[in-house]
Amino acid sequence: MAHSHANQHEHHEKSEGHAHAGHGHHGHHGFAHPSPIWQLLAVFFALLALTVLTVYQSTLDLGNMEIWASLTIATIKAALVILFFMHMIHDKPFNIIMFLGTLVFVALFLGFTLMDAHNYKDLIEPGSITPK
């Protein structure tokens, strides 16, 4: 027991030394970054407020802007979840680049497929599949 405990302390010192010099107040937790409770609650209530906002926004008549309004609110919510609940603000740059890079590829995928579909709109009609 004493052995393994001593070992842990050694790791504490090692990780403090090289990885997170910038986060002095978290230093004694090694590589752990426990989110403060106020932050978790603030993010949660912000998410709830944005949900109420998006439901309210859906009752307004915004015409073609509606989809963009709801997507903007959803993206703000998603950003809050990723940054704080998923700890992206404390994550390794490589993980961040991978994830954001994926979103770029998703945008390319959706964007090009939509452009293509509209170019051939008269030929491709998803609504005209022969019914049973």
Partner: peptide, 22 residues
């Protein structure tokens, strides 16, 4: 936790995109 938040992340988009179309 990361997996669970991603499931939440997907729902954040699904809810307005499916339920809130007017």
């Amino acid at each position: 936790g990361l997996y669970w938040h991603l499931v939440d992340f997907i729902w954040i988009y699904l809810f307005p995109l499916l339920y809130l179309i007017t």
